Amino acid sequence: MSDVNRETTQAAVPALHFTLLLSATRRGARLARLLTERQLADWGVASEAAEHVVAELASNAVLHGRVPGRDFRLTLRLDAVGVLRIEVTDARGDRLPHTHDPVGDYAESGRGLLLVAAYADRWGVVDGPGPGCKTVWAELAPERGTA
Rank of each mutant, 00 (worst) to 15 (best):
D3A: 13
V4P: 01
Q10R: 15
Q10Y: 13
V13F: 14
A15T: 03
A15E: 12
F18H: 10
L20P: 03
L20A: 11
L21K: 00
L22T: 05
L22G: 06
S23M: 09
A24R: 01
A24H: 01
G28I: 06
G28S: 05
A32I: 00
R33M: 00
L35Q: 12
T36V: 09
R38V: 10
Q39P: 08
Q39R: 12
Q39G: 07
L40H: 04
L40K: 01
A41D: 13
W43M: 03
W43F: 06
V45M: 09
V45W: 05
A46Y: 14
S47N: 05
A49K: 01
A50L: 07
E51C: 12
H52E: 13
H52F: 11
V54P: 03
A55L: 14
E56M: 03
E56L: 08
L57G: 00
L57V: 00
A58V: 01
S59T: 15
S59Q: 15
N60R: 02
V62K: 03
V62Q: 05
G65C: 02
V67L: 07
V67C: 01
P68Q: 13
G69T: 02
R70N: 05
D71V: 04
F72V: 08
R73I: 03
L74H: 04
L74C: 08
T75I: 04
L76F: 05
R77P: 07
R77G: 11
R77N: 10
L78T: 05
D79G: 10
L84H: 06
L84K: 03
L84E: 03
R85I: 12
I86G: 06
E87N: 05
V88P: 11
V88H: 02
T89M: 09
D90R: 03
A91E: 00
A91K: 01
A91P: 02
G93N: 04
L96T: 14
L96Q: 15
P97E: 04
H100L: 01
H100T: 10
H100I: 02
P102E: 04
P102N: 05
G104E: 02
G104R: 00
D105Q: 15
Y106L: 10
Y106C: 06
Y106S: 10
Y106E: 13
A107I: 09
S109I: 13
S109C: 15
G110E: 06
L114D: 12
V116M: 08
V116H: 06
V116P: 13
A118R: 11
A118N: 08
A120C: 07
D121Q: 06
G124D: 02
G124A: 04
G124N: 04
V125A: 12
V126A: 15
V126Y: 06
D127W: 11
G128T: 07
P129W: 07
G130R: 10
P131K: 10
G132P: 07
K134L: 14
T135L: 08
T135Y: 08
T135P: 09
A138G: 07
E139K: 02
L140I: 02
A141R: 02
A141T: 10
E143P: 14
E143K: 11
E143Y: 14
R144S: 07
R144H: 09
